[in-house]
Simulated scan of single mutants.
Amino acid sequence: MRYVDIGGSGLLGSTVALGCMRIASLDKAELVNLLGVAVDAGINLFDHADIYGGGRCEEVFGEAFRSVSVRREDVLLQTKCGIRDGFFDFSKEHILASVNGSLSRLGTDHVDLLLLHRPDALVEPAEVAAAFDELHAAGKVRAFGVSNQHPMQIELLRRHVRQPLVTNQLQLSVAHTGMIDAGINVNMTSPGAFDRDGGVLDYCRLHGITIQAWSVLQYGQIEGTLLDAEQFPELDRALRDTADQLSVTPAAVAVAWILRHPARMQAIVGSTNAARVASLAAASDVELSRPAWYEVYRAAGNRLP
C-alpha cells in the first residue's frame, strides 16, 4: 500500500481508503472482519459522513473498531457534515453539533479530517471559520477539507478560514471523467471540452489539495457499476485484458487507473465485502503504463483530439 501526505497536512493516508456509507447493513462480526481485512491490506483511512445510515454507520463503526487489533492513532477517521433533510447547512451551529454527534457515535475524542459535504448556497464563510477555529482549538478536528466544491467556492472559504483546506472529495471513475476530459479537449468544440468543474483538477494540483475520488467503480451520476456493464463492452474487455497481464482484478485496474494520475489522488472504495476490499487495495501497488492508461480511457468511449 502506498500513502500520500494529504494536502501537505502531515496526515499520511492510504491511497485506497474505505468508504463506510453502507456498513450499517453488516452485523458486528462481519464489520470487525471487514475492518481487520482493510487494515491488514494497508488501508488506514476510513471515510464517514454524519448522514450515512442516519448516523448508524458511524455508530456501528465505533462499536466494531474497539474489537479490531489496531490503535486509534494508527488510523485516520474522516467524516463530513452539511447535508440535512431537504437542505444544506454550513452554519457554525450545525457544524459544531454535527462534529460532536460524530465523535460520540465513533467513540473517539477527535476526527482526523472534517469535510464540508455538498456546497451550501447560503454559506457564510465567517461562520465556517469560527466553527473550524473552535473545533481545531479543542482538538476535535486535526485537518479540514471540502467535498464536491469548485475552485471559486474553495477560494471563498480560504479567504476566511485559517486552517488549510487539504482535500476535496470529487466523483471520478474511468466512466465519469469530466474533469479529465476538459483538460484534454482544450480549444475544441467536442462534448469533452465542456468544463463543468471550473478547472478543479488543475486547481487542486496547483494548491496542493488532495483529491479523494468517490464512486470509483460507477458511471454517470451513480447510474450503476461500470464493471460488466452492457454499455461498456470495450471498457470491460480492456479492464479484463489489463487485469490478466497484471494478475489483479478488473476492478483493481479501474481503481489503479485513478491512482495513476499524477495528482496523487486517493480512491475511496465502498464495498462491504472483505475479500473484494482486499482485492481493491491491491490497486495501490499497480502502476499502469502511459499506453495502458490511455487505452482504458479510450475504451470507456473517450476520443482523443
Rank of each mutant, 00 (worst) to 15 (best):
M1C: 08
R2K: 15
R2Q: 14
V4R: 15
G8F: 08
V16N: 04
V16I: 14
G19H: 03
M21C: 01
M21L: 03
R22D: 09
S25L: 09
A29V: 10
N33P: 04
L34A: 07
V39G: 04
F46V: 01
F46D: 00
H48Q: 07
D50N: 15
Y52D: 02
G53R: 03
G54E: 08
G55S: 14
V60Y: 04
G62C: 13
E63T: 02
S67Y: 12
V68L: 11
S69D: 15
R72W: 11
D74R: 12
V75C: 05
T79K: 00
K80L: 06
G86M: 08
F87V: 11
D89S: 14
D89F: 11
F90R: 04
E93S: 14
I95M: 13
S98Y: 03
R105D: 13
G107W: 10
D109M: 10
D109S: 15
H110M: 09
V111P: 00
D112N: 12
L113T: 02
H117Q: 10
R118G: 04
D120S: 12
A121I: 09
L122Y: 11
L122V: 04
V123Q: 08
E124P: 06
E127T: 10
A137E: 14
G139D: 10
V141A: 03
V141Y: 01
R142K: 12
A143M: 00
F144E: 02
F144N: 02
G145M: 02
S147D: 06
N148H: 06
N148R: 11
Q149D: 09
H150C: 08
I154K: 05
E155S: 14
E155L: 15
L156W: 01
V161A: 06
Q163W: 06
L165Y: 00
N168P: 14
Q169T: 09
Q169Y: 08
Q171L: 09
L172P: 00
S173R: 09
A175W: 02
T177E: 00
T177C: 07
M179N: 06
D181M: 12
G183Y: 05
N187C: 13
N187R: 15
T189P: 05
G192D: 12
F194H: 15
D195G: 03
R196Q: 13
G198N: 08
L201D: 05
L201S: 06
H207Y: 14
T210Y: 10
T210I: 10
I211E: 08
I211N: 11
Q218V: 03
G220S: 08
I222N: 15
E223S: 14
G224D: 10
L227K: 05
D228A: 07
A229R: 02
F232R: 03
F232P: 01
P233H: 05
D236R: 11
R237H: 13
A238F: 07
R240S: 09
R240I: 04
T242E: 02
A243P: 05
A251Q: 05
A252S: 15
I258P: 03
L259Y: 06
R260W: 01
A263E: 01
A263F: 01
R264E: 04
R264C: 01
A267S: 14
I268W: 06
V269W: 08
T272F: 10
N273I: 10
A274M: 12
R276F: 06
A278K: 13
A278E: 11
L280E: 07
L288T: 01
L288W: 02
E295P: 04
A300N: 02
